[in-house]
Design a protein around this nucleic acid. Structure first.
Length: 283
DNA sequence: ACTACGTCCTGCTTGC
DNA sequence: TGCAAGCAGGACGTAG
């Protein structure tokens, strides 16, 4: 599932293979892929046709390609991929949007099995598209303000994992890296945010940063081959996950079997010894 | 104003 | 063997 490291890997791939090229044609093969482009698929295509891709940007799990004053904004959802393929190669059934370029080189295929991802053209967008103005800075960008984040945590009345997943507080963290960062910091996911000590918050931020950096070094994580980078290569950070998806396996720190708890209609993985459940926790 | 939850979607896995 | 339920989950809209 693409979280910040996977999205950043994709951004780097796009930066290398797409920037500087002029878009010749835009095909929307599945309207759901552009559902957040309010003016509809035809307008989406028209706004991109003939435009040159000027660069690549990312905040959290969103990435965008500035094209003049506009930007092609993308969210990969759970299974979104950008694939570069020879234009004469047949389209797979999960290709939702296809861009071709006037240089005749590889086309760009937004492919998304589970269709949670989406693309849109932001008309205001090169710097920071207004539609994602509510997305907080991610911990790898200069705009991230640790004291602002700590203050927001203190004023929240929720559990720490819910807060980590709230993209308006800190962006880029999903279910996998949330569990990994909490394990590393020895925090249970239900710890009340307002009762976290400053050192615990600082440790949590550091853990998220470290885990993101480590994942980036190996090109992001992958579980079911749904996620691949822009060239179609799978990431492999999953080999170094400590608790996520490892129910019953020994905690790498203390050997206690990892526990899985239902959480927000999904799962949370913890070490029941390293991450003690709080008395007055918030799920 | 803030928090929590249902919903979208497909395909693989599990269980009867 | 076949079918149905379970599971994966990011972000948004809405209910409370």
């Amino acid at each position: 599932m693409p979280e910040l490291p996977e999205v950043e890997t994709v951004r780097q791939g796009l930066d290398e293979h797409v920037v500087g090229r002029r878009i010749e044609s835009v095909e929307v093969l599945h309207p759901r892929a552009v559902r957040r482009h309010e003016a509809g698929p035809a307008d989406f295509a028209a706004r991109l046709r003939g435009r040159r891709v000027d660069g690549t940007r990312r905040r959290g799990k969103y990435l965008w390609l500035p094209v003049g004053e506009d930007a092609l904004l993308a969210h990969l959802g759970m299974s979104g991929q950008f694939l570069l393929r020879p234009p004469d190669e047949p389209l797979s059934s999960h290709v939702r949007v296809r861009l071709t370029f006037d240089d005749g080189g590889p086309d760009l295929r937004f492919t998304d099995q589970r269709t949670f991802g989406h693309l849109l053209v932001a008309a205001d967008g090169a710097e920071l598209p207004a539609v994602i103005a509510h997305i907080a800075p991610d911990p790898l960008e200069a705009a991230f303000d640790a004291s602002w984040f700590a203050g927001r945590l203190r004023s929240r009345r929720t559990g720490v994992k819910r807060a980590l997943l709230d993209q308006s507080l800190i962006s880029g963290v999903g279910n996998i890296y949330a569990d990994e960062a909490l394990w590393r910091t020895r925090l249970h996911f239900a710890r009340a945010t307002e009762r976290l000590r400053p050192a615990e918050v600082a440790g949590l931020i550091a853990a998220v940063r470290d885990i993101f950096a480590e994942a980036l070094n190996v090109g992001g994580t992958s579980f079911d081959s749904l996620y691949v980078n822009v060239n179609g290569e799978s990431g492999y950070f999953d080999r170094s996950l400590n608790v996520y998806g490892r129910e019953g396996e020994p905690c790498p720190r203390c050997g206690t079997p990892v526990r899985r708890d239902p959480f927000m209609n999904r799962s949370s993985y913890t070490c029941p010894v390293c991450q003690r459940r709080p008395r007055n926790g918030r799920w």
